[in-house]
């Protein structure tokens, strides 16, 4: 007869390394087998990053995750319901948020998201059909998240000079900006964001490729216009 596996021979940090190779579903299965593994699955180091994209995330799901999210650094999710639910994670130390697909989201939702995550350094937002999003949302992001270093926005069609000037004023560390399908990006205002090192712009009608205003930003090392 084949011997049974005795996983208790493995030290805890080895089991944690093993768990880090598994997705949440598999971790959940392990967590549900016995007390020891339940405790190990809760280990802080396994909850530095959370990718909720394949899962349905509503307020009650987010609330059930809150106890593990105190030290969460990176978060990825999709959908407007998740965007509103994220606040229930109480992940106040988040450094990075990526929203892969979001529609029907409002200025208010985005502003709340920004206001609750002041430590944000990287924000990537992919918005679709968000007619209700105005430049105010970006202004709120700029004011609430002064540590921003990287900002990638897709489909924020109303972004104007006001919002970009707010970025220039409140986010001194902003180095990497991407505006994709943001129709009203203003090139003169862009020139005011002197901290920028990497710029990527696509499907935007307002930027003239002469980039005269941008050349004013003497510190601009590299510019990519897609």
């Amino acid at each position: 007869m084949k011997d049974m596996l005795d996983w208790t021979r493995l030290p805890d940090d080895t089991v944690i390394q093993l768990l880090s190779c598994l997705n949440y579903r598999d971790r959940a299965s392990l967590s549900s087998t016995c007390r020891t593994w339940r405790i190990l699955v809760k280990s802080q180091c396994l909850w530095q990053a959370l990718d909720l994209r394949p899962h349905k995330c509503d307020a009650s799901v987010a609330a059930s995750l809150a106890s593990r999210c105190a030290y969460l650094q990176k978060l990825r999710f999709r959908g407007p319901e998740a965007a509103d639910a994220i606040i229930n994670l109480q992940a106040w130390s988040l450094r990075q948020i990526s929203v892969d697909g979001c529609w029907k989201i409002s200025d208010a939702s985005l502003s709340v998201l920004a206001a609750q995550h002041e430590a944000l350094e990287c924000l990537q937002l992919e918005l679709y059909l968000c007619e209700r999003i105005s430049s105010d949302a970006l202004k709120a992001i700029a004011i609430c998240c002064p540590r921003l270093q990287k900002l990638r926005l897709t489909g924020m069609r109303e972004i104007d000079a006001d919002a970009i000037n707010a970025l220039a004023k409140y986010c001194p560390n902003l180095m990497d900006i991407g505006f994709i399908d943001c129709r009203k990006v203003d090139e003169i205002a862009m020139g005011n964001v002197v901290s920028v090192r990497f710029l990527s712009v696509a499907r935007t009608c307002n930027i003239k490729y002469g980039i005269t205003a941008l050349e004013k930003a003497a510190s601009l090392d590299r510019l990519r216009c897609l």
Binding site: M4, W7, Y24, S32
Partner: peptide, 21 residues
């Protein structure tokens, strides 16, 4: 892994709920 289920009924319910998502 030859693991024995050492959860009480209450705990088992809680852990299921925790990971339902």
């Amino acid at each position: 892994f030859n693991v024995e289920n050492d959860f009480s009924v209450v705990e088992e319910k809680a852990v299921r709920k925790e990971f339902a998502w």
